[in-house]
Simulated assay, not measured.
Amino acid sequence: MNNPKPVAALVANLNPENMPSLQVAQPVKVDANTKQVINDLFDRLKGLYPAWKQAWPTDVELRAAKLEWLAEFMRAGIRQLEQIQHGVRMAAKDRSAFAPSPGVFVSWCFAPEAFGLPDAERAYKQALRNTHPSQTGHCTWAHPAVYHASVAAGWYSLQRLDQSLGFKRFEQKYLEQCQKLGRGEVLSPSPVAALPEHAGPRTPEVGRAALAMLRKTVAGGK
């Protein structure tokens, strides 16, 4: 008997063209390779979630769930092995005993960390700082995704909403930017902070001249 292959290795062979759509009313045909991928993925999920039978109590429901997950992967535009790997890693960190919905798992695949970006909390803190009026023209952004999420969330709203509501709004827009990256879209660059004006040479002569000018101004005002 062959040793089972790791889920990550099998996911590399996921072919979107072979993923069935649940909207098709015809009998669904899944090629052997894709079937192996999804079966191994679900075996891994069963190992991570002791209460998985709450979601898939019968074989019929389990088979239907596998088709639903395949269709959700296709709809979400998941194309990279790293995304699936990250979803599995996030599942391994999940403390729930109950299996996630396909939508939740897909959101894990698009989590910012999968693209080397700051997590949502750190990105939100930067958004709050950079959207303050005092930072206009002087802020730097960790990644264009953080900037575009801030714009989409609304700079005014981020500054005035309660932080729990503001974070929820920002997180949604941030995830949308991550989904664009996952689909291979290129985000336009974020603005570059203006460089400070050159103050000129600093020498004792310059300092004495400035002091003399200040004294002259003060004396003239008396």
Rank of each mutant, 00 (worst) to 15 (best):
P6H: 04
V11T: 08
P16K: 10
P16F: 11
A32E: 11
I38N: 14
N39C: 01
N39P: 00
D40S: 15
D40E: 15
D43L: 10
L45R: 01
L48Y: 14
K53F: 10
Q54A: 15
D59G: 00
A64D: 12
L67P: 06
L70V: 12
M74I: 00
Q85V: 14
H86M: 07
V88I: 15
V88T: 13
R89L: 11
M90T: 11
A91E: 12
A97N: 08
P102T: 02
E113Q: 13
E121V: 13
Y124D: 02
Y124W: 00
L128W: 03
N130R: 05
P133N: 03
C139R: 13
W141E: 01
A145D: 12
V151H: 10
A152P: 02
L158Y: 00
Q163E: 15
Q172E: 13
Y174R: 06
Y174T: 02
Y174I: 03
Q177I: 02
G184K: 01
P189F: 12
S190D: 15
V192D: 01
A193L: 00
T203G: 11
E205R: 08
E205H: 09
R208E: 09
A209Q: 11
A212E: 10
A212H: 11
T217K: 09
V218H: 06
A219S: 13
A219W: 03
K222Q: 13
